[in-house]
């Protein structure tokens, strides 16, 4: 069965189709996007994120024909992600391809093979009986990793941290692994330490929204705690990165979402308590064991 989350945003005859990730796992629906304003709205409401927002940015540039202007608006909407980095990449490929649409087609068509290659590289270093803890959702790559590891005659079980409040772990990662027939277990975010303590985890794999040359990353909130606990238990932490930038990630603004979103998926109540919602956190390179970038470069300690 094809995994819709591997390519959650498509472009068909002048319309961008965005898989509404907030409707999963209960419904598989696509939102049609025809303008920059509509694209910004689905981005703001987190209808798509991670790899989906990369695809959304590229396809929106096809609509607007404005690489930097689109990046500026996207960057204001989701300040932690590096849309200017994508703009640089797109501008570079556009020079060679002739126009933005051709450049986007070239970039997107190369993604699948690059991601599968990376999955094979990750699978290579995992143990023969891998018990991998993950958080959030790496846009279909956990399924690719499982397929690659099984092709190597090794075994895998993925332990999925539910990832409150948005529940990307439960609604996206756990759902897609089940659909693909990959052994998976679901846990509450706070159970991670106990699972490590009782010897049930032998690797941690996460994605990253940003990374730098030093090896620091910014990713979904909760990643830092997992990496810190993993180091305490001598468990390796591997991260999937895009193009590492030359910058100090400590200076990147960590997006704070509206506090009402902390209570997403809960039944309505008369009044909610005061809350904070930092959406990402910073994990220093010292806590990470290996980095796998999208261009096939691997760095390990």
């Amino acid at each position: 069965m094809k995994n819709p989350l591997a390519f959650p945003v498509r472009y068909e005859e002048g319309v961008i189709l965005v898989l509404d990730e907030t409707a999963l796992p209960f419904a598989e629906e696509y939102i049609p996007i025809r303008t920059l304003d509509e694209a910004v709205m689905v981005l703001k409401e987190m209808k798509t994120r991670a790899f989906g927002q990369v695809l959304l940015y590229f396809y929106t540039c096809v609509l607007t024909q404005d690489i930097m202007g689109t990046a500026r608006v996207f960057q204001q909407t989701r300040p932690t992600f590096d849309f200017y980095g994508l703009a640089g990449m797109l501008a570079e490929v556009t020079k060679r391809a002739g126009d933005i649409k051709a450049a986007v087609e070239r970039i997107v068509s190369a993604f699948e093979e690059k991601r599968r290659q990376r999955a094979r590289q990750v699978a290579e270093i995992l143990p023969a009986d891998a018990h991998v803890l993950t958080i959030c959702h790496v846009s279909g790559e956990m399924v690719y990793i499982a397929e690659a590891i099984q092709a190597m005659q090794k075994r895998i079980c993925v332990y999925v941290s539910e990832t409150r409040p948005y529940l990307q772990g439960t609604r996206l990662t756990f759902w897609e692994l089940n659909r693909a027939g990959v052994p998976a277990k679901l846990l509450c975010d706070n159970q991670a330490a106990w699972l490590m303590h009782t010897g049930r985890i032998n690797a941690v794999i996460t994605g990253s929204d940003r990374s730098n040359q030093k090896g620091d990353i910014i990713n979904k909130v909760g990643t830092y705690a997992l990496a810190l606990l993993a180091r305490h238990y001598h468990i390796p932490v591997y991260v999937l990165i895009q193009r590492p930038a030359e910058m100090d990630l400590r200076k990147v603004q960590i997006e704070e979402r509206p506090e009402k979103e902390v209570f997403m998926w809960l039944k309505k109540r008369n009044k909610w308590p005061p809350a904070v919602y930092p959406a990402f956190d910073f994990t220093p390179a010292e806590l990470i064991t290996g980095w796998f970038d999208i261009e096939g470069k691997v760095r390990k300690k």
Binding site: S161, N190, L228, P273, P278, D281
Partner: peptide
């Protein structure tokens, strides 16, 4: 007085 967070945010608050 109090403030609410989800469990996975604790690491960042410690940090």
């Amino acid at each position: 007085p109090h403030v609410y967070v989800t469990d996975n945010m604790l690491g960042y608050l410690f940090f």
